[in-house]
Design a protein around this nucleic acid. Structure first.
Length: 460
RNA sequence: GGCGGCGUACCCAAGUGGUUAAGGGAGCGGACUGCAAAUCCGUUAUGCGCCGGUUCGAAUCCGGCCGCCGCCUCCA
């Protein structure tokens, strides 16, 4: 089941082509560093894509870059460099940031400026079909000609007009009409067009790129909830006016990350960049924190909550650390080929059921935590522990968690461990404790167990 | 004003008609330990913003009220 903004209900997921799923999600406008809000959106759609693949779909995932836009141009003019330099700079920064978050690259990452011909073709068809009109080199979509306008956001045209704070531009036939093409102003990048040099409006790029890579009608279209109106509403209008078929079947929108009670936004100056967060938190902890709340719900930024997630992550990971020595040994080399014990099947089933229910990651995580407890609690056979831990990791990876295998300790840590074992044998606990503290400084935790001391990497 | 969302324990957060209201964090008591850590056991909501109603039965449905938030303008 997937919650569809269009119907405002959860609907069974039925793809247009059996076994195949085509998905488009609106990317970022590259004029500045990305913040936690972007991180949430990227992680949410990363998990959706991962899960759909896990569930057996052949997924084609497209996510664009908006690399021509007012704010990019303004910034370029401020710095006295070409717009392209700004967009390239922040595309590179964006890629670095989300790679640090473990977000997998989509199948296609188109840039708006590489698809101007496709946009022009679309606009020409809209003009030819009477859905758009030209004024002084600008081209506007005439909302009145598309009666379904408002169907996604639940707005009706009259109310839109009543509360209209839209820019009053008398050249437009109606204040609600939106720009498909903007005539070039001095000092702006421009492309030739049948209506003179200019640049594309914001909405048309997504229609053009989605259609180019996914066809006129595809399965899932996603983005932040703020894009429902006007962005996605406009995409639907301009696309469906041309194609006469549903642009996307399912509209999926993620909830925001707030700073305190306020929305995070550049204009309020309360953004927190991904880079700043990654400096002080394990990226997987950030991911766990984000996935601990349903994707459609609002999240309030808190360093404390992310820290708690780091602690929880260590717990989740523990069975993998415990299983590592066995898994590495010769005897269990083929452990992955052993079937997962039946007693663990319930956890996998619960995980899948949760994810099938509109990507309910909090519930899926609960299943993983219970799984983890089951692996830690009873004294399992090494074989059960190894296969169970492998299954736990396989599921966690669908959420982008527990990506790393347990790592062997470096030689200097092992040397200190040997020293500590010797000290303890002589009941020299003072020395033993010193060594334990020393090892901790190197990033490893020492746990004494009946089977001897165990080393685990410190996390969070 | 229009549209939408939220209010569940000390904190975060699932659950949207039916056994004892998930899970994580935090606290407290205990076991284990040389001490720890980890783990385990016990414990912290007879109640899910408030008031009514429907029902054999509601956190879940309906009505009203209170509080918080988002969109309607660039925004993930």
């Amino acid at each position: 089941m997937v919650y569809n903004t269009m119907s405002r209900t959860k609907e069974p997921l039925v793809t247009m082509r059996a076994g195949e799923l085509r998905m488009y999600s609106c990317g970022v406008t590259v004029y500045d560093l990305s913040h936690v809000g972007h991180a949430k959106m990227m992680i949410v759609f990363d998990v959706i894509a991962r899960y759909l693949r896990f569930a057996g779909y052949r997924v084609t995932f497209v996510r664009n870059f908006t690399d021509i836009e007012d704010k990019i141009i303004r910034r370029a003019n401020e710095e006295g460099v070409p717009a392209r330099e700004i967009s390239e700079r922040y595309i590179a920064a964006f890629r670095e940031d989300i790679a640090a978050l473990g977000v997998q690259a989509p199948d296609v990452e188109p840039k708006a400026t590489d698809h101007v011909p496709e946009m022009l073709a679309l606009i020409e068809r809209l003009v030819a079909g009477g859905f758009a009109y030209v004024v002084d080199g600008d081209v506007y979509f005439e909302v009145r000609r598309f009666p379904a306008y408002g169907k996604l956001s639940g707005k009706n045209l009259d109310e839109l007009l009543a509360g209209a704070r839209v820019d009053v531009d008398d050249r437009k036939r109606d204040p609600r009409d939106f720009a498909l093409w903007k005539a070039a102003k001095p000092d702006e990048p421009s492309w030739p067009s049948p209506w003179g040099p200019g640049r594309p409006g914001w909405h048309i790029e997504c229609s053009a790129m989605a259609m180019r890579y996914l066809g006129p009608s595809f399965d899932i279209h996603g983005g932040g909830e703020d894009l429902i109106f006007p962005h996605h509403e406009c995409e639907i209008a301009q696309s469906e006016a041309v194609t006469h078929q549903p642009f996307a079947r399912y509209w999926v929108h993620n909830g925001f990350v707030n700073m305190g009670k306020e929305k995070m936004s550049k204009s309020l100056g309360n953004t927190l960049t991904i880079r700043d967060i990654v400096k002080r938190h394990d990226p997987e902890a950030l991911r766990l924190w984000i996935l601990g709340t349903h994707y459609r719900h609002l999240l309030e930024w808190s360093d404390e909550r992310v820290h708690e997630a780091a602690v929880a992550l260590a717990r989740l990971r523990r069975p993998i650390e415990y299983a590592a020595p066995y898994a590495a040994s010769e005897t269990f080399r083929a452990a992955h080929e052993h079937p997962v014990p039946a007693e663990f099947a319930a956890f996998s089933r619960r995980f899948v059921e949760a994810m099938d229910d509109d990507f309910n990651t909090p519930e899926a995580l609960a299943a993983l935590f219970d799984f983890s407890s089951a692996l830690l609690g009873k004294s399992l056979s090494p074989q059960a522990l190894v296969t169970g831990a492998a299954e736990l990791q396989r599921l966690a990876r669908v959420l982008g968690l527990l990506q790393r295998d347990a790592q062997p300790a470096p030689p200097d840590v092992l040397r200190l461990m040997d020293e500590r074992v010797a000290a303890r044998a002589q009941r020299d606990f003072r020395r033993s404790d010193e060594l334990r503290a020393e090892i901790q400084r190197l990033g490893w935790l020492v746990e004494d167990t009946p089977e001897g001391a165990r080393l685990t990497r410190k996390s969070g």
